[in-house]
Simulated scan of single mutants.
Amino acid sequence: MSNFNNNPYLAHIFIYPIKSLDGIWIPQSTILDSGALTYDRQWAIFDDNDRFVNGKRNNKIYQLRTSFNTQVTQVFLQVEGSKEKIEFNLQTERKEIEVFLSDFLGFSVHLKENKITGFPDDTNASGPTIISTATIEAIANWFPNIEFAEIRRRLRANLEINGVPAFWEDQLFANQNQWVNFRIGQINFQGINPCQRCIVPTKNSQTGEVTNNFQSQFITKRKDTLPPWVNPSQFNHFYRVSVNTKIVDSALDKVLKVGDKIEIIGVG
């Protein structure tokens, strides 16, 4: 899968239109003025107490399969194991989607939309998350019973880099209160910190079943395999992988494309 030619390039772009549900691969993406990818986490599910309904708190979320049309105007919802796939319009059938989700989850939920920033996990680093293909492969090797594609689904990164060794992306952050400037295609980024993982990667992405000892095994292997370019000051613990980013200046209407070259500029 990986091609180590020391010539990093953008190999894949993934967006997750409804936060916590399945992602989709896209060949290119425009950038919102906030720095987020268009349509990424644009919608999110909330309960009546205005709390996110996600895989951290609700295992039934993992049993929902979602797909979208090319324009991301239609969503297709399907319960894992069912042959029935139901289509909804994300703008005109919001109430119908809420009824479907409420019936499935067993409590009242609401689907909210934010076209400006989406619903990022880290509001201080609201750009796309970055990981390398080789990193996903390395982590899959730590867990012989988990396939590469499943590790990719669990980590839910937006941008995947090829042409580099595992954990190359750890060069994209510096000390706390510093950042690394880099460019993908025509778009300038700042690498902020290694992403702190939650309980989600410990669970099967399609069933919610917990993988025993996933977090402890991950921490041990991550610590043991830290490459020399890693800045340890950002690791208060080793349950971290992928890089949180910000967009440096307005990238509105600029396009990020698969195949774009990646260049590290320096520490800011």
Results as ranks from 00 to 15, higher is better:
residue 8 P to E: 00
residue 11 A to P: 01
residue 16 Y to K: 02
residue 16 Y to I: 00
residue 16 Y to S: 01
residue 24 I to P: 03
residue 26 I to Q: 02
residue 29 S to V: 08
residue 29 S to D: 05
residue 31 I to S: 05
residue 34 S to D: 10
residue 36 A to H: 00
residue 40 D to P: 04
residue 40 D to C: 04
residue 40 D to V: 00
residue 41 R to T: 01
residue 43 W to K: 01
residue 45 I to W: 01
residue 45 I to V: 03
residue 46 F to H: 11
residue 46 F to T: 07
residue 46 F to S: 05
residue 47 D to G: 00
residue 49 N to M: 06
residue 52 F to P: 14
residue 53 V to A: 00
residue 54 N to W: 01
residue 54 N to C: 03
residue 55 G to N: 04
residue 59 N to I: 08
residue 60 K to I: 11
residue 61 I to V: 10
residue 67 S to T: 04
residue 67 S to K: 07
residue 71 Q to H: 12
residue 72 V to D: 10
residue 89 N to L: 02
residue 91 Q to P: 09
residue 92 T to H: 05
residue 93 E to S: 09
residue 94 R to W: 05
residue 96 E to L: 08
residue 96 E to T: 05
residue 98 E to D: 12
residue 102 S to M: 10
residue 104 F to N: 05
residue 105 L to Q: 06
residue 115 K to F: 07
residue 117 T to Q: 01
residue 117 T to N: 01
residue 118 G to N: 03
residue 120 P to D: 01
residue 121 D to N: 13
residue 122 D to I: 10
residue 123 T to M: 10
residue 123 T to E: 10
residue 124 N to L: 13
residue 125 A to L: 05
residue 126 S to K: 08
residue 129 T to P: 14
residue 129 T to C: 14
residue 130 I to M: 05
residue 130 I to V: 07
residue 130 I to L: 10
residue 133 T to L: 09
residue 134 A to N: 06
residue 135 T to E: 00
residue 137 E to D: 14
residue 137 E to I: 09
residue 138 A to L: 13
residue 140 A to E: 13
residue 140 A to K: 13
residue 142 W to S: 07
residue 145 N to E: 13
residue 147 E to T: 15
residue 150 E to G: 11
residue 151 I to L: 04
residue 152 R to G: 08
residue 152 R to A: 11
residue 153 R to W: 03
residue 155 L to K: 00
residue 156 R to N: 12
residue 160 E to R: 01
residue 163 G to D: 07
residue 178 Q to P: 08
residue 181 N to Y: 11
residue 188 N to M: 15
residue 188 N to R: 15
residue 194 P to Y: 02
residue 195 C to H: 04
residue 195 C to S: 07
residue 202 T to Q: 10
residue 203 K to P: 06
residue 205 S to G: 02
residue 205 S to C: 02
residue 205 S to L: 03
residue 207 T to A: 01
residue 208 G to I: 05
residue 208 G to W: 12
residue 209 E to N: 13
residue 211 T to V: 15
residue 212 N to T: 14
residue 212 N to I: 12
residue 213 N to Q: 15
residue 213 N to R: 15
residue 213 N to F: 14
residue 214 F to W: 05
residue 218 F to T: 15
residue 219 I to V: 15
residue 223 K to L: 12
residue 224 D to R: 13
residue 224 D to I: 08
residue 225 T to S: 14
residue 226 L to I: 00
residue 229 W to A: 00
residue 229 W to H: 02
residue 234 Q to L: 04
residue 234 Q to F: 03
residue 236 N to K: 13
residue 236 N to T: 14
residue 236 N to I: 14
residue 236 N to C: 09
residue 237 H to F: 11
residue 240 R to E: 02
residue 241 V to R: 07
residue 244 N to S: 13
residue 245 T to S: 08
residue 246 K to F: 02
residue 247 I to T: 11
residue 249 D to L: 08
residue 249 D to W: 08
residue 252 L to N: 11
residue 252 L to W: 10
residue 253 D to P: 02
residue 253 D to F: 03
residue 255 V to C: 05
residue 257 K to M: 01
residue 258 V to R: 02
residue 260 D to I: 11
residue 260 D to S: 04
residue 260 D to W: 06
residue 262 I to L: 05
residue 264 I to M: 03
residue 264 I to Q: 01
residue 265 I to D: 04
residue 265 I to N: 07
residue 266 G to F: 07
residue 266 G to C: 06
residue 267 V to I: 12
residue 268 G to S: 15
